[in-house]
């Protein structure tokens, strides 16, 4: 049985100009000991869907789902106290900006120990020992001394390590990392990604990595889910996704990578991600898709079978029956 199961999750925000659907019918499934990457551009709803899972969205958000369960708990009907016992212990999250996610008024030691005090039955000594152990685990030199440091005294990479230490303090079963390396330099990014992978191997937790960097996905993830404008458009194992993308958006995204370029001019995706007011009918990608025809612009695309990467497309790429599908359409 999978650790986290989300079926048909939708998140709608009430804005002054009407409702805005940030997440639209997303399914997520993560097994124990698995690394799932969620990729997408800004506005694709990748962060919002995970914040909804964590229960961290403000009251303006309306969350609906057919199923939302984590390790046997139904996250939809969980009471406040029960949720707080779960969040931060079995399910933890790392945020993008380490500098603004840590409290500048408290030492990093205090902030790590706070999680331990809330969730574990450790005495003062034990908490300190565990905090030192954690800082050591995430590769911070001189951990005893660093417990007394404030966030502004540490660099961005060090603060991100502190964030990771806080998140894994209670040995979570699921760690959600929301763009954990976007604010960092490449050499530090490599260190942090290696650290996350090593921790995942050692502790056997599941890891959901939210990112927009295809390189990070290729190097870290086992399974990838691609989101576009609030919908999941494709999901597949990482090799399959990079070799034979089935959705046109995935294919176009991969082709736009400078390192895959064969010519001086990069292949581009025309237009921009649809926003609140210009959501198209039918397939959301159809205004930017080279393959789109009238059917794409009118009819919502079906979700293809798993063999075709669950692509949400009328005319999936690399499909053996591609020719047939065109025939049927005619």
């Amino acid at each position: 049985m999978s650790l986290l199961t989300i079926r048909n999750l939708s998140v709608e925000f009430a804005t002054s100009s009407g409702g805005f659907r940030a997440v639209d019918g997303v399914d997520v499934e993560v097994d124990e000991r698995e690394i799932l990457a969620i990729v997408g551009e800004s506005g694709s709803g990748k962060s919002v869907s995970m914040l909804a899972t964590m229960g961290l969205l403000p009251w303006t958000a309306k969350i609906t789902a057919d199923e939302m369960s984590f390790a046997g708990h139904d996250l939809r009907s969980l009471s406040g106290p029960a949720r707080r016992r779960l969040i931060g212990k079995d399910m933890a999250m790392i945020f993008q900006e380490p500098m603004s996610s840590l409290n500048p008024c408290f030492t990093v030691g205090f902030q790590i120990k706070e999680a331990l005090r809330q969730h574990l039955k450790l005495d003062r000594e034990g908490r300190k020992r565990r905090a030192v152990e954690l800082l050591d685990l995430v590769g911070i030199p001189e951990p005893e001394r660093r417990l007394a440091a404030f966030p502004h005294q540490l660099s961005g990479g060090m603060n991100q390590r502190v964030m990771i230490a806080m998140a894994i303090a209670c040995n979570p079963r699921l760690l959600i990392a929301d763009e954990p390396t976007t604010a960092l330099d490449v050499t530090i990014q490599a260190q942090i990604l290696d650290l996350l992978k090593d921790l995942q191997q050692e502790t056997g937790m599941a890891l959901i990595l939210i990112t927009h960097d295809m390189g990070v996905v290729a190097e870290t993830a086992e399974r990838v889910s691609v989101q576009y404008a609030g919908q999941k458009v494709e999901e597949n194992a990482v090799e399959a996704l990079f070799d034979t993308p089935h959705h046109h958006y995935t294919a176009a995204l991969l082709a736009a990578l400078p390192e895959r370029a064969t010519e001086r001019r990069l292949p581009t995706i025309p237009g921009v991600v649809p926003g609140q007011f210009d959501r198209p009918q039918g397939c959301l990608f159809s205004p930017r898709c080279a393959r789109a025809d009238d059917r794409c612009r009118q009819v919502d695309p079906p979700v293809q079978p798993a063999a075709l990467g669950l692509a949400r497309c009328h005319y999936p790429l690399h499909a053996p029956q591609e020719a047939q599908a065109v025939e049927v359409a005619r």
Binding site: S155, G157, M158, D185, V186, T187, I188, Q189, A190, Q191, L193, D194, D213, M214, G215, V216, V217, A218, E219, V238, E239, F242, L254, L257, E259, R260
Partner: peptide, 25 residues
């Protein structure tokens, strides 16, 4: 060399002989 090896490549099968730099700038 370290900078090049640390840059993630969009190739899930690519060989990873990443040079790990100690410490920070």
């Amino acid at each position: 060399k370290a900078l090049l090896s640390a840059t993630p490549k969009a190739d899930p099968r690519g060989a990873r002989d990443r040079i790990k730099l100690k410490g920070e700038l």
